[in-house]
Design a protein around this nucleic acid. Sequence first.
DNA 1: TTGTACGCGTTATCAC
DNA 2: GTGATAACGCGTACAA
Lengths: 326, 326
Amino acid sequence: MTIKEIARLAGVSNSAVSRYMNRGSLSDDKREKIKKVIEETNYIPSSYARAMRTRKSNQIGVIVPKINSESVSRVVSGISKVLNEAGYNFLLADTDRSLEKELEYLEVFRQGQIDGVIFMATIVTKKHIEHLRELQKPLVLVGQNIPEFACVYHDDYMAAYQMTKTLLDTKCKRFAYIGVTEKDVAAGKSRKEGMLRAAREHDLKEEDIVMAISDFTMESGRTAMRELLQQAPDIDGVFCATDSIAIGAMDYLKEIHRRIPKDVKICGIGDKKVSRLITPKLTTVHYYYKTSGIEAANMLLDRIQTEEQPTKHTMLGYELRIQDTI
Amino acid sequence: MTIKEIARLAGVSNSAVSRYMNRGSLSDDKREKIKKVIEETNYIPSSYARAMRTRKSNQIGVIVPKINSESVSRVVSGISKVLNEAGYNFLLADTDRSLEKELEYLEVFRQGQIDGVIFMATIVTKKHIEHLRELQKPLVLVGQNIPEFACVYHDDYMAAYQMTKTLLDTKCKRFAYIGVTEKDVAAGKSRKEGMLRAAREHDLKEEDIVMAISDFTMESGRTAMRELLQQAPDIDGVFCATDSIAIGAMDYLKEIHRRIPKDVKICGIGDKKVSRLITPKLTTVHYYYKTSGIEAANMLLDRIQTEEQPTKHTMLGYELRIQDTI
DNA sequence: TTGTACGCGTTATCAC
DNA sequence: GTGATAACGCGTACAA
């Protein structure tokens, strides 16, 4: 069924049918005729032709590092909610934490039928910046603060500062930090710097702090904890850049029968659901992941609908969740 | 940049450029000329025009009940892997467990630029069947077994049977079951029936079993456990249809100081990551969620590429994970 | 191998 | 308000 056939069957012109489907401005009798024919034939306009003609797909590209991760899937859930209500669909690109795949998808989305892109960033290289510039489509970053582009992110620096300060206030003697690569500015660099500020305020020098770099898995957090203890067996306070790391570290501490929080205090960032299920309950920082997805999607829709927008930066707050590991 | 302009700049015809972009059959000198012009101009063919012309979008629609759920996000991760490697993108539709939204999305995907659909089903009503029939596009269901359509699902009946049997073999006296609505055939009906078979084999009649219906949340599992204990305080064995329910139930049991597994034995299905993190570790059944996503995506690609396929049904096995709650 | 010409289905433009 | 017609950009049958 094409618009042409409908027009023929209804005894009107193509344009009349097109008007019927879109705005209006049509006499009532034609409207009736067309309505009847369309109902009889179950006519559906070709979204292919429409997209080609209007250069609008109503599709958003969403790039995420790992969909089967709690924080990411919560962000996506927020994005989904907003976009759907606005009549948009979205293509999900899961990069499995591969920087190359991120670049590839930016390219795919640049070439494809995509009205805008939400990019949940981790490590942002120069190449990333170049690709983002070349995108030439409305864009919002989630999770990282890049001045040049519109962003939604959390206050990692202050979150880490407050969490560390709270930990150090409990007067632990030997303080350790397990972070992630500083190439990830939000989770790596900012959180480390926040932690360092709190340490300084407690008269700790950087060289007094036992530190390790982990990746985003529990297993890696576990290993880091083990290695730190070999280096400094008297550790009695650990701040971890993420909950997964903290949970992995706790797992090891339990295994070697260190009591938490009596022997070792520990805390993280992210407030994963499991934090409240394990024993003892992990002290952590709540992040508004779903909200950040909602904010990002709304921001993107703004940018799509009204051009010449200034790049907006939205920084979300956080909330300390003091539980039983501190 | 259009194909026409490239042709003009290279001094060849449109079709030569088109041939260059697609198959080949072109003299080397023209090939060179075109290549040069394309590189200079950064020409990218319009995916809109191409999609319209070929009626292929290379886009798959994926409908899921809740993306921020561990099992669902694992399935999606599997789907993503396969589709991306095959050069497909996918639109993710998160229905938040709303049956209406499922129907809406089936309609959106029917009308839209979609080459095929993967539908992760929960409750399949007659309306669903109708919509699925009307879809007229390659389709694979995940998680439910509907004879009429291609499906990938787990052996819920046997998984529940084996898990329950193992639980009852530990000789608990008062057995309870917390399930989900039987409208969900896979998680509700099949698991219940598997459970019942094991119960019968242990000479338990259906009326001897204390039962409750929960939804898919921990909170609901917690409530169900509390209510069951009011009804039958001597419960010493609980089989839960999902891990989330079991974890919620455990949370309540711990709160009222029932020892697990000494006072009450408990187990679930799904093998969520957290099952191994809580104390005691939950005995459960491992499901191959990511694999089911991979299988479904491969099956769909088959159906897209070769028509006149018989509807295939793939049932995946499972693996008992006997841990500390039994 | 190469180029011409047309079709895909819609929306936009412009006369009436 | 209405209808003919021109784009939109690509792929391809067909003739050369």
